[in-house]
Nucleic acid binder design. Structure first.
Length: 255
DNA sequence: GCGACAG
DNA sequence: ATCTTGTCGC
């Protein structure tokens, strides 16, 4: 894991180059979904993506689970294991997790139509969290559902499932182009950017952070997340990918 | 200069 | 993320 700077597909990146690459890629994001916030126009499936590790991080495990979006029944799943090539660096998570995630997605027999990723979408310092990066790479609508905040500020959402508050951040480089500055009429000094939502997915449980990725907006990402909610804090696609990627399931009852 | 910091 | 059992509470 010492030569992690050497190759990620066709990239040859050290941290500074990765950051530059993120700025460039954020430029190519399109926050317009092919369908709206109402279920009638949505695709037939949604694919949950998550990454886990073993051997003190030496091995990366990428799991993808495709569910029928109407019934939330699992249709197909893939699990890929490969040597880890990069350490974890806050803000550069996608460079560590994407190679394996992409391999898992390519292994799917049924082409994914929409991706729900464990992590952030544009709720990232340079607006390119894992979900956005992966959606851009696959050219698929994508959004992120993260368990912790990476950047931005927010209040406390209400107690009921479905309650949410906005996650906003100071305006950054890509924001005008992305169209996420909430009030362009305000003095530059007071402008804020709309990154996503802090959603109470389950009563009395810490909220999750929902943010759009590629070809997606907050309304639709929120609607889809709520629609995919089962009885737990995490929506089904991500929850299932999570238990697949996490080694505990394999240890307890390997099947 | 001092924190904060997805998985 | 991961190392880890039982346990308190809705």
């Amino acid at each position: 894991m010492s030569e992690w700077t050497t190759a990620l597909h066709d990239w040859n990146l050290d941290p500074a180059d990765a950051v530059a690459k993120q700025r460039e890629m954020a430029t190519r994001l399109t926050l317009t979904p092919p369908w709206g916030a109402s279920p009638e126009a949505w695709p037939a499936t949604i694919t949950g993506v998550d990454i886990g590790f073993e051997d003190a991080g030496e091995v990366t495990r990428a799991a993808v689970v495709t569910l029928d979006l109407a019934t939330l029944e699992p249709l197909e799943q893939q699990l890929i294991r490969q040597p880890t090539r990069m350490p974890y660096i806050p803000g550069l998570l996608s460079f560590r997790e994407l190679p394996a995630a992409i391999a898992a997605i390519e292994a799917l027999e049924r082409p994914p139509e929409c991706l729900m990723v464990d992590g952030h979408g544009i709720a990232h310092p340079r607006r390119l969290g894992v979900a956005a990066h992966l959606g851009l790479w696959c050219d698929l609508p994508s959004f992120g559902v993260a368990k912790k905040r990476l950047c931005g500020k927010h209040g406390e959402p209400g107690d009921a499932r479905g309650d949410w508050v906005a996650l906003t951040d100071r305006v950054r480089e890509a924001d005008a182009e992305l169209g996420i500055i909430e009030d362009t009429a305000l003095p530059r000094r007071e402008q804020r950017s709309q990154l996503g939502a802090v959603l109470r997915s389950r009563a009395k449980v810490k909220p999750v952070f929902v943010s759009p990725g590629q070809r997606m907006n907050l309304d639709t990402a929120l609607s889809m997340t709520l629609h995919c909610l089962g009885k737990t804090k995490l929506p089904e696609p991500t929850r299932l990918a999570d238990q697949l990627a996490s080694r505990r399931l394999k240890r307890l009852r390997d099947a």
